[in-house]
Simulated assay, not measured.
Amino acid sequence: GLCFANNKGEFEGVRVNRVEGNRIFPASRIEITPHTVLYRNFDFEFDKRLSRPSADRRIDVEITLYAVPGGYALYMKDECGNHTTIREDVPHETARTPQQETQKKQLGKLGTTAYSALKIDIDLPDNFFIPASVLSKLRQKAVESLDRVRRITYRTEKRQEEDKTVCYPQTELSYLGNVSNRLAEQFYREHGVTRIDPAFEIKPSRGVPLMFTRHCIRYMLGICKKTPAGSKFPDPLTLLYKGQKLQLHFDCTACEMTLQRME
């Protein structure tokens, strides 16, 4: 799915059938002017993955139903140890047929909640008949109460305080340290760095590499220095990019290529 602002300033969207290279084939005809900014607002594959059972995450809970004077109580405990108890007043009534399996099934209907019933115990002194509406009410109230308990007891992890006694492994930093503001400089000085060069974008250095990369143009062209064909092309090589000449150096031991601006 793509969306964009049309000529009237209205937000408009369209589904995409397929993409081939840099060509997009929309599902319906659209009026769009060149250079319009497109925004992606629907990812079919991502949405499909989220709809699979593997994307479903639930919190296991243990549920116990027991009798209290004048009614019933439902105890619910999650896997983190949070728990709650809900009571509902209703007369005790003996059933004519076994009720435990029906009661477990009713209490286990946690639907779209964040919980999944790991264990359900029916701890009643007799085979009581409890209306489905009462069991449903107990379950819903227990879920709401447990949600509140979890919010109250949840504690976010706090960032540990910085240990300023720890020394940085180096006492000097070149432009490669990328120190571009006073807070970064303050941090390094507090940890024992005595000489700090500013980042390249703050103070350009002459005759230094602009980029370090594992991508090797020699290897891509089939002229790796470790092969016979590579000996025909001695270092350094020159790359022309938008009128700018860049010198390429190759460190085969580290399997690394560096780009340096030619003065």
Rank of each mutant, 00 (worst) to 15 (best):
residue 148 R to W: 05
residue 177 G to P: 06
residue 183 L to Y: 13
residue 164 K to P: 00
residue 199 A to N: 05
residue 194 T to Q: 09
residue 210 L to V: 05
residue 144 E to H: 09
residue 187 F to K: 01
residue 203 K to D: 15
residue 148 R to K: 13
residue 165 T to M: 08
residue 204 P to I: 03
residue 164 K to R: 11
residue 140 Q to V: 15
residue 212 F to L: 08
residue 217 I to D: 01
residue 202 I to L: 14
residue 140 Q to D: 14
residue 142 A to P: 02
residue 168 Y to L: 07
residue 184 A to D: 15
residue 142 A to V: 09
residue 211 M to T: 00
residue 192 G to V: 00
residue 157 E to G: 09
residue 192 G to S: 01
residue 206 R to W: 11
residue 197 D to C: 09
residue 193 V to S: 06
residue 160 Q to W: 12
residue 201 E to K: 10
residue 138 L to V: 11
residue 163 D to M: 09
residue 206 R to P: 05
residue 168 Y to C: 06
residue 153 T to Q: 13
residue 167 C to H: 11
residue 145 S to T: 09
residue 134 V to Q: 03
residue 164 K to H: 08
residue 207 G to F: 15
residue 177 G to Q: 09
residue 160 Q to S: 10
residue 199 A to V: 00
residue 174 S to V: 02
residue 171 T to L: 06
residue 140 Q to Y: 14
residue 143 V to L: 05
residue 194 T to K: 09
residue 184 A to C: 08
residue 157 E to C: 10
residue 178 N to H: 12
residue 148 R to I: 14
residue 189 R to V: 00
residue 215 H to R: 04
residue 136 S to K: 13
residue 182 R to G: 15
residue 138 L to T: 11
residue 177 G to F: 05
residue 151 R to D: 07
residue 194 T to P: 02
residue 214 R to L: 12
residue 136 S to G: 11
residue 139 R to Y: 04
residue 175 Y to I: 01
residue 144 E to C: 09
residue 159 R to V: 10
residue 197 D to R: 07
residue 139 R to E: 02
residue 178 N to S: 08
residue 161 E to N: 06
residue 209 P to C: 02
residue 213 T to N: 03
residue 161 E to G: 06
residue 212 F to M: 04
residue 148 R to H: 11
residue 151 R to S: 11
residue 203 K to P: 09
residue 200 F to A: 06
residue 195 R to E: 14
residue 208 V to Q: 10
residue 173 L to H: 04
residue 175 Y to D: 02
residue 153 T to M: 09
residue 138 L to A: 07
residue 164 K to Y: 12
residue 202 I to Y: 08
residue 208 V to F: 08
residue 188 Y to K: 01
residue 182 R to M: 14
residue 134 V to K: 08
residue 167 C to L: 14
residue 194 T to Y: 06
residue 169 P to S: 04
residue 172 E to M: 10
residue 163 D to C: 04
residue 207 G to N: 15
residue 192 G to P: 01
residue 190 E to H: 03
residue 179 V to Q: 08
residue 196 I to A: 06
residue 180 S to G: 12
residue 207 G to W: 14
residue 174 S to W: 05
residue 216 C to P: 04
residue 174 S to N: 08
residue 147 D to G: 03
residue 201 E to D: 13
residue 146 L to S: 01
residue 170 Q to W: 15
residue 185 E to N: 07
residue 138 L to I: 12
residue 148 R to T: 14
residue 133 S to M: 14
residue 142 A to T: 05
residue 199 A to E: 12
residue 215 H to I: 01
residue 144 E to M: 12
residue 216 C to F: 04
residue 173 L to I: 00
residue 173 L to E: 07
residue 169 P to E: 06
residue 184 A to T: 02
residue 144 E to N: 11
residue 168 Y to W: 13
residue 191 H to D: 06
